[in-house]
């Protein structure tokens, strides 16, 4: 089995107009900058981007927003320092926004990857973000029913990978990357080091079964 891909352009080639796309990262850490740059070159449009943040300055997801490739953002925290392109597109009414509490976002992704039909969480019970959602009282406490969140693709970043798609991570660049790998039909990963030999099974964080392609991108931000 060999899931390695020669270059970034080939890795993102399967992505087409209207695709839903999970993008790993939190703040500036763990973002697949190489894959995002390659995606920018394809000029696809109407994307739904699922990510914790909505990019900052002129980097990462902000580039996709600037280029007008994004129709909808599903995230927990779009308004980061320097998130000018998100704000510009949002104010102009050019993108749809779905704000999801961060733990609910992670768990909706996990539920999709784990084949669950949803889950009950106390998060957001009684607030604006629970409006219109099914609720239940269990042992006197209120819970909100949340649905699984799938995606067509995931663009992810890891520190090391092998040709079987096994991954390990560096520091807080792990964040959403492992869980997103489980929930996308096609997970594409840029790895800082593509190992010629198999990763030590004891160090594998994301097993290769969740990964469809791996491409080396040695640049660390």
């Amino acid at each position: 089995m060999d899931k390695s891909v020669a270059d970034l352009a080939s890795a993102v080639a399967p992505i087409t107009d209207g695709a839903s796309l999970m993008i790993g990262g939190f703040g500036s850490s763990g973002i697949p900058f190489g894959l995002i740059d390659a995606l920018l070159e394809t000029g696809v449009s109407g994307l739904t981007v699922i990510s914790n943040n909505a990019g900052a300055e002129e980097t990462g997801i902000a580039k996709l927003l600037k280029a007008g490739m994004v129709a909808k953002v599903i995230c927990s925290y779009p308004r980061s320092p320097g998130s000018v392109w998100f704000e510009r597109r949002y104010e102009a009414g050019e993108i749809e926004l779905e704000v999801v509490p961060q733990g609910t976002l992670a768990e909706r992704i996990r539920a999709a990857g784990a084949g669950l039909g949803g889950f009950l969480t106390p998060t957001a019970y009684g607030t604006l973000l629970a409006e219109g959602k099914e609720t239940r009282i269990i042992d006197g406490r209120g819970y909100v029913m949340e649905a699984p969140l799938h995606a067509d693709f995931a663009l992810l970043r890891a520190e090391r990978g092998d040709k079987w798609g096994n991954l390990s991570f560096h520091a807080t660049a792990r964040n959403f990357n492992p869980v997103m790998a489980t929930a996308a039909r096609h997970a594409i990963v840029e790895v800082r080091h593509l190992s010629d030999t198999p990763l030590d099974p004891e160090t594998v964080v994301t097993p290769g079964i969740f990964v469809q392609s791996v491409v080396e991108y040695g640049v660390r931000p």
């Binding site: 500036s28 850490s29 733990g103 768990e107 996990r110 520091a171 964040n175 869980v179 964080v205």
Partner: peptide, 27 residues
């Protein structure tokens, strides 16, 4: 380390006994 940050996106270090984990575990 540009990939070692906190929730405020500030650079941090690790204290003795530190551990890294993914978002599902964190929440």
């Amino acid at each position: 380390d540009l990939e070692l940050i906190d929730a405020s996106k500030r650079y941090i270090t690790t204290a003795p006994g530190a551990a890294f984990f993914e978002h599902s575990d964190s929440f």
